[in-house]
Design a binder for these strands. Structure first.
Lengths: 212, 212
DNA sequence: ACCTGAACACCGTTCAAGT
DNA sequence: ACCTGAACACCGTTCAAGT
């Protein structure tokens, strides 16, 4: 009874929170302007007083999902980078289709730079210079979003009892998705560490000195 | 005059090719079933004889984009992995919004496993066992798709003359996108090489033996 | 400042029926 | 085997007008 709708007129924050609720309850495809308006007892056109269009609403949701305070992580993380990557994954997993919302917002060049900034800061805290960290953070961010997006798609297939025949990207060897995530982050951190000893070997020279 | 429409009735291949043409000419948002039908001089409902729904059509397009024969790459690649990653990037770049089509198809668990298979084979060819390679290929695939997707979004912004204020994922330091891509692949390969010497250090032990 | 009412210009998809 | 015609059940967005 004492829900999100109580007084009379709504604020931009109300709209965003109602949208987050629909997202989490029923998923991104169900989050239409018309359904959101109905949840707020509003005409669809009223939403356009609060947000210029649907994409900017989604960008706002993406910011909220990413900005979410990180729950205290169990155990010491192996590095700041590991911790920041895991915290970002947790944030994306906290809302249904969270990764997709953030991904599509990023793909349109919208949304804040919070996620990228935090990963960059963590890499810097692990001892790399700001320039390198910023570029590496972009790489890590692509992996994290891609991974969690795939993870969440799998969750909703599982909840529907769908048997996926031989999907190319599913964990192949009985490892669960958290293990696969840790593996990806470890690969990334390993690559960073290798750069620490041999700072420039991109063009020219043998790129794989350890091979054979 | 002698275009895609000549005889009378169309095949599934005709439909897919007409769709690829709309995609490449006008982008993914313009690729609607109604516009596609019009391009083929068909009623929209006719498309549903060839494809059960729009998503399976998009999955077919994704397969075609990825399966595309790789143009001969200039210069020797530093490794099979570098070559396969670059070839995949080229394939995605060959069609407007190519990365987004593949990404959304993957996100729905549709499409073939060609991209993943090829990356896996390349990693195996570089001397890693099949198990590790398959998991690593997933990581690399996430990066490649995320990177190219962002790259293509940027291309269409540039072509519109849009000035993006301070986007968090744009190349920050004057490096072009191809350099950023090479950097990401190098990071990935570096991480793999580190695993070659220390095959298991994920849980337990110091994860960053080189730090400090 | 915040919302209604009504409309515009679209979508994907189904299905009986035609050839 | 391949397509038409007509409909269903939706979308996001605009805009004048109300309070």
């Amino acid at each position: 009874m004492a829900g999100t709708e109580s007084g009379r007129r709504h604020t931009r924050d109300d709209v965003a929170r109602a949208a987050l609720r629909i997202l989490d309850d029923d998923g991104l495809p169900e989050l239409t302007m018309r359904r959101l308006a109905a949840a707020l007892d509003l005409q669809p056109s009223a939403l356009y007083w609060h947000f210029p269009n649907k994409q900017s609403l989604l960008a706002d949701l993406a910011d909220r999902i990413v900005a979410q305070p990180a729950p205290p992580r169990t155990g010491r993380d192996a590095s700041h980078t590991h911790g920041a990557a895991a915290a970002l994954r947790d944030a994306l997993l906290a809302y249904r289709d969270g990764a997709e919302v953030v991904s599509s917002t990023l793909a349109l060049g919208l949304g804040s730079t919070t996620a990228h900034d935090r990963l960059t800061a963590a890499i810097v805290a692990d001892g790399y210079d700001a320039d390198l960290a910023a570029r590496a953070a972009t790489v890590l961010l692509h992996f994290v979003i891609g991974h969690v997006s795939h993870e969440q798609q799998r969750m909703q297939y599982d909840s529907l009892g769908v048997v996926v025949p031989a999907a190319g990207l599913s964990p192949q060897n009985g490892g669960d998705t958290a293990d696969e995530f840790a593996f990806g982050v470890e690969l990334f951190v390993g690559g960073l560490e290798r750069l620490r000893r041999a700072p420039s070997n991109l063009p020219g020279g043998t790129a794989s000195p350890l091979a054979e």
